[in-house]
Design a binder for these strands. Sequence first.
DNA 1: TCAAAAGTGTTAGCATTACACCCATGC
DNA 2: GCATGGGTGTAATGCTAACACTTTTGA
Lengths: 209, 209
Amino acid sequence: MVAFAMHKGQLHILLVRRGLEPHSQSWALPGGFVQHEETLAAAALRELREETSVALSPNHLEQLYTFGNPGRDPRGRIVSVAHMAVLPHGTPAVHAGGSTVGAAWFVAHDPPPLAFDHADILARAIRRLQTRLEYANLAFEFLPEHFTLPELQEVYEAILNQKLDKRNFRKRILSQGLLEPAGERRNGVGRPAQVYRRTKRVKYPGSAL
Amino acid sequence: MVAFAMHKGQLHILLVRRGLEPHSQSWALPGGFVQHEETLAAAALRELREETSVALSPNHLEQLYTFGNPGRDPRGRIVSVAHMAVLPHGTPAVHAGGSTVGAAWFVAHDPPPLAFDHADILARAIRRLQTRLEYANLAFEFLPEHFTLPELQEVYEAILNQKLDKRNFRKRILSQGLLEPAGERRNGVGRPAQVYRRTKRVKYPGSAL
DNA sequence: TCAAAAGTGTTAGCATTACACCCATGC
DNA sequence: GCATGGGTGTAATGCTAACACTTTTGA
């Protein structure tokens, strides 16, 4: 499971530190084996919760890709059905569970060395997130119910890893007609920002939720 | 495996008739179990060849999606990593092999009732093919080395299941600069068509070939 | 009054769409 | 000479990208 969240303007992912061989003490994506009467998505979510103790429900969950090359795991032929999830805003405290000895948030674009082929999985998840952003409005899933346009733009910039033009961004977002004003907010110094919320929440059809 | 090919201006898929329970005598997508030292894509390709006797190598092969809901197969928990392939032009004769009792081509947009959840798999494959067409130039993979623009347009129309404007289509394709003239062709009555071939074959990065 | 953050319009270039007639051949 | 299929251009519209200054607040 590649679990994404936004924190301080940066895209983060949730990793666990392995306690067992192979790759003991390495960082890895949380995951494990499917049980007999659960869906693949439910298994990914259960393993995420067991190994990292995150209590949050993701705002988005979708299957990413299946990695099954022989030799990707020294224990034998292991086929991993990778999923990706978008967690609500913020990076809450996490702690190890199950067979792991650590759990922590990392900046997605600058991860530590990862066990197995998990770096490939992460790279594919980031690419998918970037393309989904365009036509599935995934950015909203990273924010709380009320947010400002600069906050939304920050999400886009963190995921795409590039700066966007403020005026064009606002024009594009507001022309979609999915937002309605919901007050103002003062963030210390500077002019107060208009607060928005989504008018209707249209679920992306590929979502597993 | 969802194996696509183009024949007489229609998008076709290759199906097998099951000889064993469950769903004996039903039409189904070709497929089977992965062997220990082969990749997932190689397994899909091997099963396609064993069950349908197609000798052709696909021009494109990619992983589609993994179907693993409990209950999708009455024999137990079966997880299927669906793939899709584009075969070269035409629908060569096929015949049953392995445990199947039939193999045949069907029009993709009008399939017979399918075993298991294979109708879902087919629907997803067609959707994927339609979106890939746009940014991966997959249409060329359905045609022989030399082809005419009306033939290429026919591929687009069969996959998208809609008519396209001839002038706009030609403008769009030729402006990509991927084609070079390669003679003319007379097809019986009517003005001869300009024949083209690709200048460079740029593989789509998601391809498993 | 200064620094910080939010907000606001216009223009040029490019891509997309709609649309109707002439051309070359076989019979 | 006529039926068949191949080939061609233009105008309107919408979308994208580039670009700089004003407004509102706290300190």
